[in-house]
Simulated assay, not measured.
Amino acid sequence: MAEPVPVVLVGAGKVAHAAHLREIRDMPRELRLAAVIDPDPAHTDPVRARFPETQLCATLDEAVRAGARAALVCTPWWTHRDTVLACLERGLPVLCEKPVSLDLAEIDELAAAERRAGVPVAAGYMKRHDPVVALFVDHCREQLGAARRLVVDIHDPNAPHLVDHLMPYPAPPVGPQPPPAAAALARALGPAATEAQREVYARGLGGSLVHEVNIVHAAFDGSGRRLHGRLLHATGWAGSSAVTARWRPDDDLLVDLTHTRLPAHRRYRETVELTAADSVATLHLPSPYARDEAATLHIDTWNPATGLATRRTHTAEPGHTGFRRQLLAWTRTLRDTPAAPLLPGLPEVRADALVVREAALGVAE
């Protein structure tokens, strides 16, 4: 049996504690947390308590000396460029939380560094690893010729109560963009971008809907359809806490994506629906941090001759989250396992960033 792959966790913040660390804990045959890098003891002390053999390191060089062979990057998004470049310089394959970057120039720089290093950068599109989402993508590919509308609607509390039961320290509230993030957004969108455009780019579009743009791109793969350059309009409202965008990939198909931040709501809700000429496929996704719920896909079809309807329902076993399946898939690539899945990488990151950037710049005051 193969030994677990030793990895360094760079950044022990919310997504690390609420998702990755509890999955790594339950995957001792696949991954070993060799090192953790984070300057805040409130973040790292709980990691050391849960993983007593993990070394607390100040630098990547220390982590490599501690045995790390790959890096899981969970630092704030505006630090990803520097962190991923440093990992590649040391020959460490990377799994980087989304968004890997919202800056096209940075993505191109990372792609060049990836080619020089000869090791891959995988993007943290964990929803793509859910088998129910994969079924939905396959259905979309089969029905694209008859597709009429693809709709995403997300109700997102994005509030501490969503993850506070998973955190060893108080979950941080959503606040104003810190100065480094604001500077990164200004570089990514250009000096003419408004505050509203920067806000929806960082959060509703780049922080959330970029996942669904990636799913749409997967559904469009090989069809010649695209979102970039096909934007009809984008709108932000409620103080930029909500955003919606609409595209027309061809004469017969509209794509609508909406993210609404609703802090008082107790539950996250995401619905993705494809309406075709004779069918409707509805995908319901729980909170990405939920282990006791699973995605559900209903596919309703009609027979025009008989008028009879058929519903097929697909779901998956709770607990095997997209985060876990993503880590399992990453482990297989790190071990160079035959037939290892190809994880989404920088080319997909760039294609997705093109789309959400165009939508952000289309948002009017």
Rank of each mutant, 00 (worst) to 15 (best):
T321R: 05
D278A: 11
T337A: 09
Q177I: 04
A238G: 02
L88K: 10
G322V: 06
L327C: 13
G307V: 12
P41T: 05
H20L: 07
D61S: 09
P6R: 12
A2K: 08
G204A: 03
L72F: 08
L150C: 01
D292F: 07
Q177L: 13
P131A: 09
N214E: 15
Q197D: 05
A49D: 10
A68H: 06
A218L: 14
G11S: 15
H259T: 02
L166C: 04
P318I: 03
H314S: 15
H165S: 07
V121G: 03
R266D: 14
A49S: 09
P249I: 09
R291D: 10
D108M: 08
E212W: 12
A340E: 04
L189W: 11
P93C: 04
R226M: 05
T258E: 14
V216H: 05
N214W: 04
T333C: 13
A353I: 15
R25E: 14
R246D: 13
P131Q: 13
H217L: 15
V137Y: 10
R141P: 02
H161L: 09
E114W: 11
T59E: 09
A71C: 09
D103Y: 06
V272K: 01
V100M: 10
L92N: 05
A188W: 05
D336C: 06
A111G: 07
A305P: 01
A305G: 13
G118K: 14
R225G: 02
G175V: 08
H155V: 15
L257E: 01
A105K: 04
F220M: 03
D278E: 15
T331K: 01
T337H: 14
L21I: 08
V349I: 13
V36I: 11
A58I: 00
A58N: 08
V7C: 03
P41R: 07
T59C: 04
H228S: 11
D130W: 11
S241D: 14
T313F: 08
H228L: 05
G222M: 09
L262A: 08
V133L: 07
L9A: 14
A192P: 01
G206A: 09
T235Q: 15
A70E: 15
V255G: 04
P99G: 08
M27T: 01
H43N: 12
L308S: 12
G207P: 05
T59H: 01
P341N: 10
A353Y: 10
T321E: 08
L31A: 00
A171P: 11
D61T: 10
V73Q: 04
P170R: 12
L95Q: 03
W247M: 11
P131H: 12
A242I: 01
D108I: 12
S241C: 08
A63I: 09
L135H: 07
F136P: 02
S101L: 04
G118V: 11
A193F: 06
E273P: 00
A234H: 01
R324K: 12
M27D: 07
V213C: 02
P179H: 06
L254T: 03
R350H: 10
P180Q: 00
A281V: 11
A196M: 10
A305I: 07
V100D: 04
E62T: 09
V10W: 12
P157S: 03
